[in-house]
Computed example of a mutant assay.
Amino acid sequence: MMRVFGRAISMLLLSLGTTSAHGQALVSCGASEGRAYVIEGGLVRPGKGGWISDQITDGKFEVVKRGAEYDIHYYDATRRSYSARQDDSATVIALREAPTELVILAVYPSRGAGGTTEVFQFRPLDREVVWMQMKYGGLIKKTSVFHARCD
């Protein structure tokens, strides 16, 4: 039963993606918008912390699978690609693989002079992602929750 279930997941993910030299692109997502809680301290002056609107308008990211390993590839406004694993030394693992969702954890130990943790909940059938980003240890500490449409 588990073998059949695993094949169903693989077939679903393969049907969504494209292949490149970097691996199998499973899903690609665009601009993200959401809310963030900013913590006072560092560059955030007293009285300026709290809830804010947060967005990433020109960015794009995709989940890539090469063999058994996952990666998150980011594209900036110039469409330059960055790999979470290779460029930021992140640990990237799948927390859940199912036909209706793929949950990815990415931990960046030294991004932004501190650290960053991201959790992505991709919903391929609905072509969307809900994701959380927590920045800690740097000059701006904040936790954001975003939503983006995916191809």
Rank of each mutant, 00 (worst) to 15 (best):
M1S: 07
M1G: 14
V4A: 14
F5M: 12
F5I: 14
R7F: 06
R7A: 09
I9R: 04
S10P: 01
M11R: 09
L12R: 15
L13Y: 10
L14S: 11
L14G: 10
S15H: 08
S15I: 03
G17M: 00
T18Y: 03
T18I: 04
A21Y: 03
H22G: 03
H22D: 04
G23T: 03
Q24C: 06
Q24G: 01
A25Y: 03
A25Q: 08
L26S: 01
V27A: 13
V27H: 12
S28L: 07
S28F: 13
S28P: 02
C29L: 12
G30H: 05
S32I: 04
G34A: 08
A36S: 11
A36G: 07
Y37N: 07
Y37G: 05
V38H: 09
I39T: 08
I39Y: 07
E40T: 08
L43H: 12
L43P: 02
V44E: 01
G47P: 05
K48E: 13
G49E: 10
G50V: 12
G50A: 10
I52D: 13
S53T: 04
I56D: 11
T57N: 12
D58T: 10
K60L: 08
K60I: 05
F61T: 00
E62K: 11
E62A: 13
V63Y: 03
V63T: 05
V63Q: 01
V64S: 00
G67E: 06
A68T: 07
A68P: 01
A68I: 06
E69Y: 06
E69R: 03
D71N: 11
H73M: 09
Y74C: 02
Y74S: 02
Y75K: 08
D76R: 05
R79N: 15
R80S: 12
R80W: 06
Y82K: 02
Y82L: 11
Y82H: 12
R85G: 01
R85L: 00
D88C: 01
S89F: 11
S89P: 04
T91V: 03
T91D: 06
T91A: 04
V92W: 00
I93H: 01
I93M: 04
A94T: 02
R96Q: 14
P99I: 13
T100V: 13
L105F: 04
A106Q: 03
V107H: 01
V107A: 10
V107W: 00
V107L: 04
Y108C: 02
Y108P: 09
S110R: 12
S110L: 02
R111H: 11
R111Q: 05
G112D: 07
A113I: 03
T117I: 13
T117G: 09
V119W: 00
V119H: 00
F120T: 04
Q121G: 03
F122P: 01
L125S: 08
D126W: 10
V129F: 06
V130M: 10
V130D: 06
Q133Y: 01
Y136H: 04
G137N: 13
L139F: 07
L139R: 15
K141A: 05
T143N: 08
S144K: 09
S144N: 10
V145G: 08
H147V: 11
A148S: 15
A148Y: 04
R149M: 13
C150F: 11
D151Y: 09
